[in-house]
Amino acid sequence: MNDVNAAFAAAAGLIVDADPAVLGIVMLSLQVSVCAVAIAAVIGLSLGALLAVTRFPGRGAVVVALNALMGLPPVVCGLLVYLLLSRSGPLGQWGLLFTPSAMIFAQAVLIAPILAALTRQVLESYWEEYAEQLRSFGAGPCRAVPTLLWDGRFALLTVLLAGFGRASAEVGAVMIVGGNIEGYTRVMTTAIALETSKGDLPLALALGIVLMAIVLGVNAAAHALRGNATRWAG
C-alpha cells in the first residue's frame, strides 16, 4: 500500500515539476494524434459526406464495412500498417517505419473509418430532411455537401473529438509501427505500458493521470458542443 502511495506522490511531483521527460512524451502524443485526426478528417469527412448523399449498387456493403472498421483492433491496424511500411512492403522505400510519421499514418488509418462512418450517420439524416429543399434551390447531391457539412458543424466537431479520443488512447498501433523508441517515438500509452512492466510506477502513473485529464477535457468539450448544436438545431 505504501508503495502505491509513494508512487502517486512521486507521480504528482513529476507533473507539478513539469518533468522534461514527461513533457516530451505528452507533447509527442498530442502531436501525433492531432496530425492523425487532421489527416483522417479530410478523408473521413469527405467520404462520409459523399456516402450520405449518394445511392449506388453496393452502397449498403460499404456502409456495413465502414461500421465494422470502427471496431478495428489497434494492434491489427498496426500490423497492417507495419506490413505496408516495412522495408519489403509496398511503401517500404518511404522509410517511415519506427518514425512519428508512421505513428500518424497508423492512427489516421485507425480513425478514418470511424470519422467516415459517424459523418455518414449524421449527414444522412440531414440529407433526408434537406434534399428536396436544396433541390428546389438548384443544388443536387454533390453541391449539397458543403451545405450539409456546415449545418453539421457542431455534430461533426463532436465526431472529430471522438476520433481524437480514440487515437490518443490507443497503444497497439503506435507500439508496432513506432517501436516505442525513447525520446523519438515514445508516446503516453506506450510509455505507460513499458514503465509499468519495468516497475517505474511513478512515471507510468504521471502519464496515466495526464492521459485521463486529456480524455476528460475532450469529453467536456464534446458536451459543451452538444449544447451549442441543440441551440442551432432548434
Partner: peptide, 22 residues
C-alpha cells in the same frame, strides 16, 4: 413547401444560402 426546411444557421444565413447556391 408545406413544411419548409430551415437550415441550422442564422435567419440571415438561411436567406443567403440559396443565393450563394445560385
Amino acid at each position: 413547401f408545406q413544411r419548409p426546411v430551415l437550415l441550422r444557421r442564422s435567419v440571415l444565413a438561411n436567406a443567403t444560402c440559396p443565393l450563394a447556391l445560385a
